[in-house]
């Protein structure tokens, strides 16, 4: 069931209502309801780079099977027909594997950028794309801090390709294909609050194997995809210069000023026009001086 947009925006509205309050949102705890989103933890210390998740993803989404392999010399990229990629990265603790896909932000930039609601955040957690609504403007791609949405530039009826967190399976009570098929148990699926607690538990219980950072806890205001790693995330090529507040906050100030301008401007303009009118005489030819 798709979440009602107004309901979804309510917490945003409250946070953004006072512009000065926006910064207070910075590193505060994520909104309580976003704790109830589903989330997935990728434990990089456990991942073996076997690509089972990639194959499962391709099968679940009717996409071609991946034909290349993780290689630390090559950076594999997301493609319109590949929603999830495993990359091998050479680090100080040896070769580790990262997984890239849509992060399913709690307050996604893409969904707030979309002028047709083709990108939608659901209360279960997934951010999905609806073909019939999309007009192909690619503003979601401009806005996404993770460069996730992929556009079929070579098609005359192009689609946006991105991980949907197997939304159809979630609705059936199943879990996403990648999690289901991970033989190394590097992926864990559950409510975001539980997954976040699990991530911190792993770090606490074995501080030597992990850096103390759950990637996705605060990045872009919190995401449904969380990562824990044996090395700092910079080393893995993750974006570490991201905002800790949700990206839609960046446009809130402007959007809130729109109604004020709409009310104030015409009043001001008409007032100015009256004030600058010459006495007893119509200034404009339009105002029937005949």
């Amino acid at each position: 069931m798709s979440i009602d947009r107004r309901e979804f925006l309510k917490p945003l509205g409250v946070a953004g209502a006072s512009l000065s309050g926006a910064s207070a949102l910075g590193k505060s705890k994520p909104e309580p309801d976003q704790e109830e989103f589903y989330a997935i933890l990728h434990d990089i210390t456990l991942c073996e780079g076997c690509q089972e998740c990639e194959f499962a993803c391709a099968a679940a989404n009717n996409l071609p099977e991946p034909s290349d392999y993780p290689d630390s010399d090559v950076k594999r990229k997301l493609k319109p027909d590949q929603y999830s990629v495993i990359n091998a990265v050479e680090t100080s603790v040896g070769e580790v594997y990262t997984k890239q896909q849509c992060m399913h932000c709690a307050q996604p930039a893409c969904a707030s950028a979309c002028l047709t609601q083709a990108m939608t955040k659901h209360e279960e957690g997934p951010v999905t794309w609806t073909e019939g609504k999309c007009m192909g403007c690619r503003y979601c791609m401009v806005s996404c801090p993770f460069d996730v949405p992929q556009f079929e530039f070579d098609d005359n009826n192009p689609k946006i390709g991105k991980c949907q967190m197997c939304f159809d399976k979630l609705k059936e009570g199943e879990i996403p294909a990648c999690v289901e098929n991970c033989p190394a148990e590097a992926l864990t699926f559950g409510k975001r609050s539980e997954i976040l607690a699990e991530a911190h538990r792993r770090i606490l219980e074995d501080p030597d194997s992990y850096v103390d950072h759950v990637y996705g806890e605060y990045e872009a205001g919190g995401t449904s995809w969380l990562n824990v790693s044996p090395v700092p995330f910079e080393e893995l090529g993750f974006k570490t210069d991201l905002e800790t507040k949700p990206y839609p906050e960046l446009t809130k100030g402007f959007l809130y000023s729109v109604p004020s301008v709409f009310v104030l401007w015409p009043a001001l303009l008409m007032g100015l026009r009256e004030a600058t009118k010459k006495d007893d005489q119509e200034v404009m030819e339009g105002a029937d001086h005949e």
Binding site: R5, C114, T116
Partner: peptide, 14 residues
């Protein structure tokens, strides 16, 4: 779509 009103993306600057 954004004109006829079945999908108003009102939070979008675009």
């Amino acid at each position: 779509n954004p004109i006829i009103g079945n999908s108003f993306g009102t939070s979008s600057i675009l």
